[in-house]
Write a protein that binds this DNA or RNA. Structure first.
Lengths: 236, 236
DNA sequence: CCGCGTCTTTGCGCCAGCGCAAATGAGTGA
DNA sequence: TCACTCATTTGCGCTGGCGCAAAGACGCGG
């Protein structure tokens, strides 16, 4: 391990979902068993259906997690940002990754083998609780999305995707809140069960209404209250 | 506690998702802290948005878990059967039940207070692993449903709901596999994001094709291969 | 055995948004 | 700077299945 990075890391681990609220010894042990990697934009971290052997955390950058079905249809499960955990569910179920993970930007990633993680969990039970909280929150979010997809129209689902991304990865600037990673119309469509065409039409309309601004692959929300209005809109 | 029920229960607890693979002492401890209840058909077990204070297991009968949104739109999250856990995610996230739970048939239910469960988890780490497996599986299933809802047509989603229910609650009879609890067209619609009308039309068509039989609130699959065919069907 | 509430079926019209297609614009590597 | 690739926009026609409405069918309680 690189001497210069060691002093920084325990502190950063403490700010991750998985290792929050651990005693210092636990952070040190966790670091000890970690593998650290730099990933270039576009790199595949793991593929759907392959053996799930490691638990992962993003330290820097952004990772897209997506599922494919037999017909080639894709959905974006989520974007994973600094401090967030991904690729762990498979360790506790069928030992297969249920999705693909790809670096959207250059990333720094930490990971632990299954044996190391189980050992850490046995020694520091807080990790189990953290993991339950993570998986539980993901489940609640998935169920919210299911309800949206089943009951809301495309426009309001698109608005909700933007709000969710802004909450997770929004940078407040003086011209509004911008989402800090490249996000195509196709990504948004695959996050809310519609086509890139519908997303494009909708965003163009909102841009004309002054609620947001877009550059290629980037979105800035100018008027978040307006977006909330689109999101909350009844079917009527 | 009733003397006659005690000798039976440790054995049955061992067959639940949550307490599988525990040492005998753990089963006894778990039983010790459990509250057992009989519930009549139609009884509400907990309501969405109220404080989540207990973890639940169905011993007998069937429970419907459903979510409502502000507009009154509903979705059925799942049907919970014997041995299965429900209402636990809230304990690890925001301490609110994320859904309603209602007895579909007369039920026997066990439950544990949060403090008791945490204490059991500390003493028997296997419980944490079991819980992670349960929540992880639910998450995977939710994500599969999301993908279906986003990419498949109504007919194939209806077929998949039937297959899932048959796998979970199917009784093999000589005339086919029947789902062992009352299931209305509305339930099916709310499980797969369509209306009871579309479900009715679709099931009628399948019944005419000889793939299944329905009585009021009950479905028997006569030809499961045919249903799989409907499920796997491309968009074309 | 009758009445009533609930579940189910079925007809009909309509429209949100998909599928297809093509043009334009932005970013990148040589 | 040019060529090429990928993202985005926009037009147009079509249709799955929703919304509405009303008429059976079932089963339960009295």
């Amino acid at each position: 391990m690189n001497v210069t990075t060691i002093p920084i890391l325990p502190d950063r681990l403490d700010k991750t979902e998985l290792f929050a609220d651990l005693p210092m010894a636990g952070l040190a042990d966790a670091l000890d068993g970690a593998r650290i990697r730099r990933l270039e934009k576009g790199a595949t971290i793991f593929s759907q259906g392959t053996a799930a052997e490691r638990a992962h955390i993003v330290l820097e950058g952004r990772v897209r997690v997506l599922q494919t079905d037999e017909d080639g249809a894709q959905i974006v499960v989520r974007f994973v940002g600094p401090g967030e955990t991904f690729g762990t569910v498979g360790l506790f179920t069928d030992h297969l990754y249920p999705a693909h993970a790809v670096a959207v930007t250059d990333c720094t990633e930490l990971s632990w083998s299954e044996a190391t993680l189980l050992d850490l969990m046995a020694r520091y039970p807080q990790i189990s609780l953290n993991l339950l909280k993570v998986v539980g929150s993901r489940l609640q979010e998935a169920q919210d999305r299911l309800r949206e997809l089943a009951t809301q129209r495309a426009e309001s689902r698109i608005a909700r995707v933007l709000l969710r991304l802004a909450a997770q990865a929004g940078l407040q600037g003086d011209d509004g809140m911008s989402i800090d990673f490249p996000l195509s119309r196709k990504d948004v469509g695959e996050m809310c069960g519609t086509t890139l065409h519908t997303v494009s039409r909708t965003l163009t309309a909102w841009e004309k209404a002054g609620a947001l601004e877009t550059r290629q692959q980037y979105v800035t929300i100018r008027n978040i209250a307006e977006i909330r209005r689109y999101a909350g809109q009844k079917t009527i």
